[in-house]
Design a binder for these strands. Structure first.
Length: 287
DNA sequence: TGGCAGGGTCATA
DNA sequence: TATGACCCTGCC
């Protein structure tokens, strides 16, 4: 892959196993919006980025090579050899098809606190509504960031949310989740939940730590570990993955699913889950 | 236009 | 371990 600056941005030329539609639409993030011209604009790492793609050429508008190397390469996980991962996972017939469909997915390295709050909001919720609630949270309590005359908003800090009241959070229309959001922010702001420590903790211990937060069950904890901490052994089992497991692997109970999927894909579980989820949702597999 | 279901979790039994 | 309740709203 070549990286150079041209036309007011950074060009990544010859990027393999990366597709911005797959990456932003596969359900791992909620703050990237598709524009009419097919590009995406999102807020991450305290910045607004516009990204577009033609074949294997990716354009990061307004970014420098330095920005790419210090921020976006890691954020988009572009230093990792996904070809190797896909080769291993393709030994499984179902995964092979899922990868043929969504092989351009990259697991984003998102901010852990943002992922924590976002996936608390995701529980028993529809994706369009999740995005709306997160948008209102950022618009109301994030910091404005200007880009080309338009205003975007950063994700609010734990301290900012922790100082709010439940009444303040009513405008989000998050329903019963508002108290979970507030409690999680207070735990992080006070240090009773030290997110920084989770990077080096064993997987099961880190998951147990996250599940101390109300509103964080096993599935949400796995999402946080996968998307916020890059823990690729985390395998979030949601309704879609469960349907895939039932239809293609004959696994119905939780124990069956854990055995069939988690053990089958091992350390690549997180990648496998993402391919399966995206594929299952696209196929609209029935209950 | 009304009802259902949603990327789960919690409390209770 | 199983079941019902939960806020709200997009979608059929």
């Amino acid at each position: 892959m070549l990286v150079f600056e041209r036309g007011g941005g950074a060009v990544l030329s010859g990027v393999k196993h990366f597709n911005i539609v797959d990456t932003f639409e596969c359900g791992q993030c909620f703050r990237w919006d598709r524009q009419e011209d097919g590009s995406y604009i999102g807020v991450a790492k305290g910045r607004v980025l516009s990204i577009s793609q033609q074949g294997t050429d990716v354009f990061l508008r307004g970014a420098t090579i330095e920005d790419y190397k210090t921020i976006w390469e890691r954020y988009f996980d572009l230093a990792r050899d996904y070809g190797k991962i896909q080769k291993v996972l393709s030994c499984d017939k179902v995964l092979k098809r899922a990868i043929e469909f969504g092989g351009g997915i990259r697991i984003l390295a998102q901010d852990p606190f943002e992922v924590l709050i976002s996936f608390i909001i995701s529980a028993n919720n529809h994706i369009p509504r999740i995005k709306q609630i997160i948008f209102r949270l950022c618009e109301s309590y994030g910091e404005p960031i200007e880009l080309e005359g338009r205003r975007y908003y950063s994700f609010p800090t734990p301290e900012t949310i922790a100082e709010l009241s439940l009444e303040d959070l009513k405008i989000l229309r998050a329903g019963y989740r508002d108290k979970y959001i507030l409690e999680a922010a207070k735990m992080v702001a006070s240090g009773s939940l030290d997110l920084g420590k989770l990077y080096s903790m064993p997987y099961h211990k880190a998951k147990a730590e996250l599940m101390k937060v109300k509103g964080v069950g096993e599935k949400v904890a796995n999402c946080i570990l996968l998307y916020g901490f890059g823990r690729h052994e985390a395998f979030p089992v949601d309704v879609w993955v469960r349907r895939m497991a039932a239809q293609y692997y004959g696994a119905c109970s939780k124990a069956d699913i854990d055995r069939v999927l988690c053990e089958r894909f091992g350390l690549f579980g997180g990648f496998a889950q993402q391919y399966l989820f995206y594929y299952a949702r696209e196929l609209k597999i029935a209950k």
